[in-house]
Design a protein around this nucleic acid. Structure first.
Length: 110
DNA sequence: ATAATGACTATTT
DNA sequence: CAAATAGCCATTA
């Protein structure tokens, strides 16, 4: 399984109503310090079933300007899942994904 | 081989 | 809280 695939797999594991940071996704994909790669993969991914909107920066902000089309789209989709977005940012304490051991092992290809 | 780039991050001002 | 700084590292030019 190549890197992009692993990243995509992890993103698909993020539960509805929860969010993860780029760095967190990279770590779970076995690619520490590759947060930027996660962004690149999401940018190029065309998979419509990919919940890319659940991936935010480490401080809970959306990686786009609030006014941008993508930013508004992301905010809208998060809202649909019951996630409150204020000032282009969400409360990580409240919504950040806390992967269970099972989820981690599953994605590690066992 | 060198330099710039980037859906990033952590720390310090 | 905003802005600068310094790491980060594969990819691209």
């Amino acid at each position: 399984m190549d890197k992009p695939q692993k990243i995509i797999s992890v993103v698909k594991l993020i539960p509805k109503g929860s969010v993860a940071s780029y760095g967190q996704v990279a770590d779970l994909a076995g690619l520490p310090r590759r947060a930027r790669l996660v962004g690149k993969v999401l940018r190029e991914a065309d998979d419509l079933s990919l919940p890319w909107h659940r991936v935010l920066r480490a401080n809970g902000t959306i990686a786009f300007e609030a006014q941008s089309e993508q930013g508004q789209h992301q905010t809208a989709r998060l809202n649909e899942e019951g996630i409150v977005v204020v000032s282009n940012k969400v409360d990580l304490k409240k919504y950040q994904w806390q992967p269970t051991l099972t989820e981690i092992l599953l994605q590690l290809n066992f």
